[in-house]
C-alpha cells in the first residue's frame, strides 16, 4: 500500500466526500418529499391519482437509475429542461429514491391502518381524522428503520452522478485510479469515506428509531 500517495491525495478525497454528503442530504430530502407525495397519491380516493402514483413507482423502480439520470441530464435539454450536472444528479436520484420510499411509507401506513384505522373509525372519527391522529403517528415510527435502509442505498447510489461528471467521491477515485494506476489505494481511500458516511447515518437512523420506539 502506497501510504505516501494516500497522504498526498487524501485532501481531494475529503473535498469530494463533502460533495457526496451534500448530494446525499439533498437527495434524501427530495426523496422524502417525493415519497410523501407518492404515498398520498397511492392512497388517494381518486382512481386517476392512484394510477399516477402507481405509474411513478413502477416506472422509476422498473428502470435503472443510471438511465433515469442520463435521460434527465442529456435528454432534458431536448424537451427544454436545462440543468447543471449537480442539480440533475439531485433531481434524478431524488425522484428515483422517492419511488422506493413511496413503497416503504405506503407499506408502513397500510400495516397500521389494517387494525388501528378501523378501530378509530368505529369510535366515530372520520377517515381523515383517524389517519392524522391514529394511523400516521404510528406509521411514522414504523417507517424510520426501512427508510434508513433506503437512505443507505441512496448514499451509495450517489456514486452514479460520477457518470455525469459531478466531482464526488467515486468520480475522484476513478480519476486518480486513471492517473496513478493505484486502484487499491484509491478504493481504500474512497471506501473508508463512504463507510464513514454510511456508518454515521446508520447511527443517526438507529437513534431516531430508538427514540420513536420509546414514545
Amino acid at each position: 500500500m502506497d501510504v505516501e500517495l494516500i497522504l498526498k491525495v487524501y485532501p481531494y478525497f475529503l473535498k469530494a466526500a463533502v460533495i457526496t454528503v451534500e448530494l446525499s442530504v439533498l437527495t434524501t430530502i427530495l426523496g422524502l418529499i417525493c415519497g410523501a407525495l407518492g404515498t398520498t397519491a397511492r392512497l388517494s380516493r381518486f382512481a386517476i391519482v392512484r394510477f399516477l402514483g402507481a405509474a411513478y413507482v413502477s416506472l422509476f423502480r422498473g428502470t435503472p437509475a443510471l438511465i433515469q439520470l442520463f435521460l434527465l441530464y442529456f435528454g432534458g435539454p431536448q424537451i427544454g429542461i436545462q440543468l447543471d450536472a449537480f442539480s440533475a444528479g439531485v433531481i434524478g436520484l431524488g425522484l428515483n429514491i422517492g419511488a422506493y420510499m413511496t413503497e416503504t411509507m405506503r407499506g408502513a401506513i397500510i400495516s397500521v391502518d389494517e387494525g388501528q384505522g378501523e378501530a378509530a373509525r368505529t369510535l366515530g372519527l372520520s377517515r381523515a381524522q383517524s389517519f392524522r391522529k391514529v394511523v400516521l403517528p404510528q406509521a411514522m415510527r414504523l417507517m424510520i428503520r426501512p427508510l434508513g435502509v433506503n437512505i443507505n442505498a441512496q448514499i451509495k447510489g450517489t456514486a452514479l452522478v460520477s457518470a455525469i461528471s459531478v466531482v464526488e467521491l467515486t468520480y475522484t477515485a476513478q480519476r486518480y485510479i486513471g492517473s496513478t494506476y493505484k486502484p487499491f489505494e484509491m478504493f481504500f481511500l474512497a471506501g473508508i469515506l463512504y463507510l464513514a458516511i454510511i456508518t454515521i447515518t446508520g447511527k443517526g437512523v438507529a437513534y431516531l428509531d430508538r427514540r420513536a420506539r420509546l414514545q
Binding site: K156, A159, L160, F187, G191, Y194, I198, T199
Partner: peptide, 22 residues
C-alpha cells in the same frame, strides 16, 4: 462483506476492472 455492503457498486466495479488489470 462489510466493505462491499458499505461502498457503491460502481466503485467496486472500478476496483475489480482496474485492480485486476494491475
Amino acid at each position: 462483506a462489510w466493505l462491499f455492503m458499505g461502498t457503491p457498486l460502481l466503485l467496486q466495479l472500478f476496483l475489480i476492472y482496474f485492480g485486476l488489470a494491475q
